[in-house]
């Protein structure tokens, strides 16, 4: 990857930060999203200098400014790795729902750890601990939500980092995008959906395909979760169904008190 000529935006020189990608416990699907857009990949690479990216290159450097860390922390050795990344990186990005909230991985926290080990690994146990998001261990500077992340949003955030403009997220819930897309409300169709309390930015990806939202992007600002739980019950969904949704990605974990029995 050679250096491209220096760029400027409105006269302000564009930095080309050194970027590294790391993965803790995850499927690496978020990193694959970046490779998933050949049309803009070269432009992406002209904005940042990727020095470590297991999904796209071999080898790698340990000199970087921005670390994109995918996955959640499930083993003790990952704690050490994450702390080392934190020491090196100026900006640590929690990349995807696992890194932000624990993601699907944290579902195991619902169960007794010994039982989990036995169920998954049988007679070949491996070391595993309670699943934690990155910010339980280190300070996180930036979060990119989603399971997986949305490549358009990643590109937008990276563009903003490069030109040095503010990075903003929608503070409103998925319903805004869902209505703009002209979808029939999933509650009208008898489907549960966390759209009213989940942060938008996915362009209502799941509801567009007639699948209710599972809340992978975590809570929107000032969401009214108690009211939504009430609504879901009135629509005839069981407490188990409701909790299964709300606990799926871990984004709502701080808001479930009083809902669990």
């Amino acid at each position: 990857m050679s250096d491209s000529p220096a760029k400027a935006y409105l006269g302000v020189p564009v930095r080309r930060p050194r970027v590294a990608f790391f993965e803790l416990s995850s499927c690496e699907g978020c990193q694959l999203q970046i490779l998933n857009n050949e049309a803009s990949l070269l432009d992406f690479l002209s904005l940042v200098e990727v020095v470590r990216f297991r999904e796209g290159m071999s080898g790698g450097s340990d000199e970087y400014e921005i670390a994109f860390v995918e996955g959640s922390v499930t083993r003790d050795d990952e704690v050490g790795r994450l702390q080392k990344i934190r020491e090196t990186a100026k900006v640590l990005v929690a990349f995807g729902s696992c890194a932000c909230f624990g993601g699907v991985n944290q579902l195991k926290n619902r169960f007794c750890l010994d039982w989990v080990k036995k169920e998954v690994y049988g007679d070949h146990p491996v070391e595993t601990a309670e699943v934690r998001p990155l910010d339980a261990i280190v300070q996180v500077d930036l979060r990119i939500y989603g399971c997986p992340v949305k490549k358009e949003e990643v590109e937008k955030i990276v563009t903003h980092i490069a030109i040095g403009s503010d990075i903003t997220y929608p503070r409103y819930p998925v319903c805004m995008e869902c209505k703009a897309n002209g979808n029939v409300c999933l509650y009208d169709l008898g489907e549960p959906c966390l759209g009213p309390v989940t942060r938008a930015g996915c362009d209502s990806w799941c509801p567009n395909n007639r699948a209710g939202c599972w809340g992978c992007r975590g809570p929107s600002d000032d969401m009214n979760i108690l009211q939504l739980v009430d609504i879901m019950k009135r629509h005839g969904f069981s407490e188990e169904t409701i909790l299964d949704r709300l606990e799926c990605f871990g984004g709502f974990s701080g808001h479930l008190e009083g809902l669990k029995k």
């Binding site: 935006y9 803009s40 432009d43 992406f44 904005l47 590109e155 937008k156 990276v158 563009t159 903003h160 030109i163 403009s165 409103y172 819930p173 319903c175 805004m176 209505k179 703009a180 409300c185 759209g195 009213p196 309390v197 929107s220 000032d222 969401m223 009214n224 009211q227 939504l228």
Partner: peptide, 25 residues
């Protein structure tokens, strides 16, 4: 209120808007 904005989105007269500036990659 869920604060979800659905009332405004289905409303035939709600016209308020937000402006976002986008920069190509």
């Amino acid at each position: 209120c869920l604060g979800c904005g659905t009332c405004a989105n289905v409303c035939p007269t709600c016209y308020c808007y937000s402006v976002e500036e986008e920069v190509s990659i």
